[in-house]
């Protein structure tokens, strides 16, 4: 189903994932009257890692935050166009954003553990969602999956803020996993971490992609190249009225984006000529 052949080389490629979890069609995002992102078409494949890259202000985080309706929390933010989660319109009238966020987890740029114990950080999500089952085993399972169990199993009652930055971020991943989501969104999850901690998170992402669909926004092109299956390249364009809008330039298999991009702008960006 990859509609490649019909397009000439001068048209940026936008491939479709075979088994899409999200289907985005003609998505624009407004902050009040300002159109931050314009006309995005994108599919996110099931149990794949999709990376969104591009220069600052290109709208990649804005698009990411539409996937779990976190943008609802910003007064005046409003999407136009459609995002389907499987077959359901994510912004349909009957959809409860609370339920959306439970099924679609998120990890933020700066590790943001709650100022509570490690155990309580993990147990919080299952508790507020009224999940059944033995809490101890839920916590253990989440920490094992996030490759943190061995480091913290003897200090579950300790304050989460006493962990290192990399550990805190893996705790946040464990916290997201604990509510058993289908998708994990990651908004520049390694930008506040050192290289060793970054490597650990990247390894973890590969591991998690067996069970979860992952969408990651990153400034680090090497990271996108290392971990992702598909990459979406965004950029900011200035229109005739002088306003900047984020646009999706190209969406393709990561190997192709980094070796043989179909758009000049992608090539310029990944070779470091701008951005």
């Amino acid at each position: 189903m990859q509609n490649v052949s019909v397009r000439g080389p001068e048209v940026p490629r936008n491939i479709e994932a075979l088994d899409p979890v999200f289907t985005v069609s003609d998505l624009s995002v407004f902050y009040g009257a300002y159109e931050a992102v314009r006309g995005v078409d994108l599919t996110i494949g099931n149990r794949e890692i999709t990376a969104m890259i591009g220069p600052s202000g290109c709208g990649k985080s804005t698009v990411l935050r539409c996937f779990n309706r976190m943008n609802d929390l910003i007064p005046g933010a409003r999407p136009a166009g459609k995002i389907f989660f499987h077959d359901e319109d994510l912004y349909g009238d009957h959809v409860d954003p609370i339920e959306v966020r439970r099924r679609i987890g998120m990890v933020f740029q700066k590790p943001n553990p709650f100022p509570k114990s490690i155990y309580d950080n993990i147990a919080y999500g299952p508790k507020v969602n009224g999940m059944k089952g033995k809490m101890d085993s839920i916590v253990e399972e989440a920490l094992i999956k996030a490759a943190l169990w061995d480091e913290v199993k003897d200090k579950l009652k300790q304050n989460a803020l006493s962990l290192s930055g990399g550990q805190q971020q893996r705790l946040c991943i464990a916290r997201a996993i604990a509510v058993k989501p289908e998708v994990i969104l990651m908004d520049e999850p390694c930008s506040a971490l050192d290289p060793i901690a970054t490597t650990k998170i990247e390894d973890l992402m590969q591991e998690l992609a067996r069970d979860y669909t992952i969408v990651i926004v990153t400034h680090n092109m090497q990271q996108a190249a290392r971990v992702s299956d598909r990459t979406a390249f965004f950029t900011a364009e200035v229109d005739d009225a002088g306003e900047r809008h984020g646009r999706l330039v190209e969406f393709d298999e990561t190997s192709r984006i980094f070796t043989n991009p179909s758009d000049k702008r992608t090539e310029d960006y990944i070779t470091g000529r701008f951005g």
Binding site: N68, M70, I98, R101, N112, Y124, V128, R175, A176, V179
Partner: peptide, 9 residues
């Protein structure tokens, strides 16, 4: 944000 992203009201 961390709390809301986990599906808390």
């Amino acid at each position: 944000e961390g709390s809301l992203a986990l599906g808390a009201t």
